[in-house]
């Protein structure tokens, strides 16, 4: 794979946590290396506690590796300070969490626009138009002024996806995006993510238990006890 086309890269990354008694450490990731190409979709699957979320947090700049390098869009994430990492997330990364984490006090439209207020957010003026288009795209055109409390679980998660895409990220990270949804909603969201990956040309890394969701991704990686191995690639 051409390095120039890579949007994110992990090189020999390890992450461990010191136990409170300082006698031993808990190793979550061991010597993980990974490249994410622009526009590709990738699923990381594995059992609970295998380190999936940690891997995603490292890619999102929400955590720092204990060793190794994490690079996003050519910048080494672990070398950036808080503000720079915030800026990187704002400009280049979109995140969808298992829980939607919508602001209950804001409407659907406002929630989607939240990232546009971050420093470095592109096209602030055109953001509302893009938000409307994206919401329409995910089938929420008639829900713009609704509050999160007035939406179903699947709808909320779709709002969260649109929020993640509002700043035109190059990399979309999804942490168990269907984890809190029922089967139908999960299916619908999985379809949506796959379509958006294609339509928006955004690289997508999804960590999930769900093989149904993983199967929609171009590549599936297996994370077992902190070690990453390739399961196979799809077109």
């Amino acid at each position: 794979m051409n390095n120039d086309a890579q949007i994110a890269q992990m090189e020999h990354v390890a992450r461990w946590f010191q136990q409170p008694d300082r006698t031993e450490r808990l190793e979550v990731l061991r010597d993980v290396s990974l490249q994410v190409a622009a526009g590709e979709s990738l699923a990381v699957v594995g059992p609970s506690g295998s380190g999936k979320s940690t891997l995603l947090n490292l890619l999102a700049g929400l955590d720092r590796p204990s060793s190794g390098r994490v690079t996003v869009d050519g910048r080494e994430v672990s070398g950036l300070d808080d503000d720079a990492r915030s800026r990187l997330r704002c400009e280049r990364i979109g995140i969808v969490f298992q829980l939607h984490h919508l602001l209950p006090q804001c409407s659907v439209m406002e929630n989607v626009l939240i990232p546009t207020l971050a420093p470095g957010a592109p096209e602030a003026a055109s953001a509302p138009r893009r938000a409307s288009d994206l919401l329409e795209r995910v089938g929420l055109a008639d829900r713009l002024d609704h509050r999160p409390g007035q939406l179903s679980g699947g709808e909320r998660q779709r709002v969260a996806v649109v929020r993640a895409l509002i700043n035109r990220p190059a990399l979309l990270l999804a942490d168990e995006p269907t984890g809190s949804l029922d089967r139908a909603a999960s299916e619908s969201l999985a379809d949506l993510l796959a379509e958006l990956n294609r339509e928006q040309g955004v690289a997508m890394v999804t960590v999930t238990h769900s093989m149904r969701l993983a199967e929609r991704m171009g590549r599936v990686l297996q994370l077992d006890d902190g070690t990453l191995r390739t399961d196979g690639e799809r077109a």
């Binding site: 999102a60 808080d82 503000d83 997330r89 704002c90 984490h101 919508l102 939240i114 207020l117 420093p119």
Partner: peptide, 11 residues
Amino acid sequence: TLLAVGWTKDQ
């Protein structure tokens, strides 16, 4: 969430 979507702590 705000921090995750790119807001700075100051903001």
